[in-house]
């Protein structure tokens, strides 16, 4: 009989245990935390953030970093609203065309990001940060600083139509998560991400076209950012040049808290799901238990550090940079 309580297992399940512990803690202080309605609220808050975090997971698994998410989400959200309105303003009137177009735009921006990083040999940190600023700037240029409202009831059904108490957008996010898991575990591209993240020279020597894998990874991330943008528009009924703000902190924190190692090769989209839920539960729970606002930022920071300590196998790496 294999031992269940190994060190490896403990670390693998640590993020999930942290999530359960948080739920128990918040429920103990305010029992109304543990209700289906509250879980639906947490799920709505987490759905767009999950898509951003899943996108950046592929990049982090490769050992790179992508910081373009805020600009890309803002730009694709604004473009999505403009395109929808130009196509008649409703899904039924032909506006659905905007969805594949915007997903393609997201992937194309990601490809440009990857191209700048790989071909111009600029570190991914800098290339993606710069491209993110370009995205925000373009969104400001398009909107002139104003808000674009988009309120087609059919499209907003993503928020308002509930199945088993959860809005449609939560199921859409779930399906996209399964798609991401499939790419990660059942495609050659997914395995190459791990190969590149585990040891780039080795992957190269084994015949993996590392540059192509990197560009494909950034393009895939851009695709998921565009999904996040569409869900965010569904959630808020509007887009503006700040629609993507806060996603950078939220997604990178979630990925790390979930147990994906920033040095690459370790973790995957399920870790990211747990990480996003941990951050969303903390954000919701702090208000639900009535924590004073001046303590919230500090408590969030502390909980993140604790979660990272518990959920990453730091003995496995020689040094942390």
């Amino acid at each position: 009989m294999p031992r269940i309580l190994t060190r490896e297992n403990a670390i693998r399940w640590a993020p999930f245990m942290v999530l359960l512990a948080l739920i128990v803690l918040f429920t103990a202080i305010n029992p109304s935390f543990l209700s289906q309605r509250n879980f639906a609220r947490i799920a709505i808050a987490a759905a767009p953030a999950l898509m951003v975090a899943v996108g950046v997971t592929f990049i982090i698994v490769m050992g790179s970093i992508d910081l373009s998410m805020e600009g890309v989400v803002s730009l694709t959200a604004v473009l999505f609203c403009f395109l929808m309105l130009a196509l008649g303003g409703t899904l039924a009137s032909g506006g659905w065309v905007a969805i594949p177009v915007i997903l393609a735009v997201g992937a194309a921006i990601g490809l440009v990001n990857g191209f700048i990083h790989v071909k111009l040999k600029i570190p991914s940190f800098m290339a993606s940060l710069a491209l993110g600023f370009v995205g925000t700037g373009a969104a400001i240029l398009l909107t002139g600083g104003d808000i674009v409202k988009f309120n087609d009831p059919t499209f907003r059904a993503l928020l308002t139509w509930r199945i088993l108490g959860f809005p449609l957008m939560v199921y859409v996010a779930g399906l996209c998560l399964v798609l991401a898991w499939f790419i990660q575990s059942h495609t050659r591209l997914g395995r190459y991400f791990y190969a590149v993240g585990g040891g780039e020279e080795l992957a190269h020597a084994s015949g993996v076209r590392v540059q192509h894998v990197r560009m494909a990874g950034f393009s895939l991330a851009g695709f998921f950012y565009a999904i996040a943008a569409i869900l965010q528009v569904a959630k808020l009924g509007q887009a503006e040049s700040v629609t993507g703000s806060n996603f950078m902190f939220m997604s990178i924190t979630s990925v790390v808290v979930g147990g994906v190692a920033l040095w690459g090769g370790i973790g995957g989209v399920w870790n990211t799901l747990v990480g996003v839920l941990i951050v969303a539960v903390i954000n919701n729970g702090m208000v639900v238990i009535g924590l004073p606002d001046f303590l919230q930022a500090a408590v969030l920071g502390l909980l993140v550090i604790i979660a990272v300590i518990l959920s990453t196998d730091r003995r496995a790496v020689a040094f942390v940079k």
């Binding site: 109304s32 703000s245 702090m286 208000v287």
Partner: peptide, 21 residues
């Protein structure tokens, strides 16, 4: 009374948490 930082997204999430509480 809690800060939502003048922000729409923060506004939705804070309001959802208030509804639970």
């Amino acid at each position: 009374a809690q800060p939502a930082d003048w922000d729409t997204t923060k506004g939705t999430e804070l309001m959802a948490s208030f509804l639970t509480r």
